[in-house]
Every structure is written in C-alpha cells, then in structure tokens.
C-alpha cells in the first residue's frame, strides 16, 4: 500500500492549448508526488494531453470550451477523469484494443489505452451532452 493514502482535487479549465500544456504538466507532477516513476509520469502526461486534445478537437470542434479534470490517488491507483460539455460522441467511442496500432487518426486514443491500466469513456455528468473519459494507472514504486 502506498504511503500516500487517498486524496485528490478537481480543476476547471478551458481547452486553450496553453492551458492544456499547463494542466497536463501539473497532473504529471501530481503523479510524481503520488509515487510515480519519472517514466510513468511522462506517459501519464501524454495520456492527459491526448484526452484534452481530443476534447478540444472533437467536443469543441477545435475551439475553446470548458473542461473539468478530477485527479485522485487511492492507494497506488492514480486516476484522472476529464469531462467536457461539448458535442456528444455520435457512436459508442471505444479505446482501440488491437495488437497492431490503428490508423494514425486514432493514435492518441490508442496510446492512451496502451499506457493506462483502465480507460472508460462515458457520458459526462456535467450535462446531458458531453463526454467523460476516466483513466487509471497503478503506480509502482
């Protein structure tokens, strides 16, 4: 069991590229505080960056919109939930679960699935339209 116990925080942000860069670095730093090795923290940073970029491009059509990011550490399980209030996914969005990398258009989501131990895409709880992505990774010492 991690010495870090259970804790977390929630931040509200916009899908501005500068803000996305800042937030993904803050979450990577949080993972390090939670016990993540540097390599894992850098991969978590990539996963968060891809999730936020997807929200910008798909939910807000490349524009700026509101996001809520919740970070929790429960024992060794580090989780990030990113919710938007934008355009809903028109079909059940899934993380590509293939042995071979998919077409390049899906690389971001594919990498997210490769890096994180659990990934779930659901309806946002912020409104009845948006999308939520919850991703978790067990932090090993």
């Amino acid at each position: 069991m991690s010495e870090h116990g259970s804790w977390g925080f929630t931040v509200q942000l916009k899908t501005d590229p500068h803000v996305i860069r800042a937030v993904r670095k803050v979450i990577a730093a949080t993972a390090r505080i939670g016990g993540a090795r540097d390599a894992d923290a850098r991969l978590i940073e990539l996963s968060v960056g891809e999730a936020l970029a997807n929200a910008r491009f798909h939910a807000y059509q490349g524009g700026v919109g509101p996001i809520e990011a919740t970070v929790t550490l429960d024992g060794e399980m580090f989780s990030v939930t990113i919710q938007n209030e934008g355009k809903p996914v028109t079909r059940c969005s899934q993380v590509p679960d293939t042995l071979e990398p998919p077409e390049s258009q899906s690389w971001g989501l594919y990498l997210l699935g490769q890096i994180m131990d659990e990934v779930e895409i659901t309806r946002s709880t912020l409104d009845d339209r948006g999308t939520a992505i919850r991703m978790s990774k067990r932090l090993s010492e």
Partner: peptide, 12 residues
C-alpha cells in the same frame, strides 16, 4: 529519450 522510445515502440 527513454519515454519517447517507449511511445515509438507502442506505435511500432
């Protein structure tokens, strides 16, 4: 860097 090489490997 090692973390970048790991990503390159994931994408083959």
């Amino acid at each position: 860097p090692p973390h970048v090489e790991r990503i390159l490997e994931m994408l083959k």
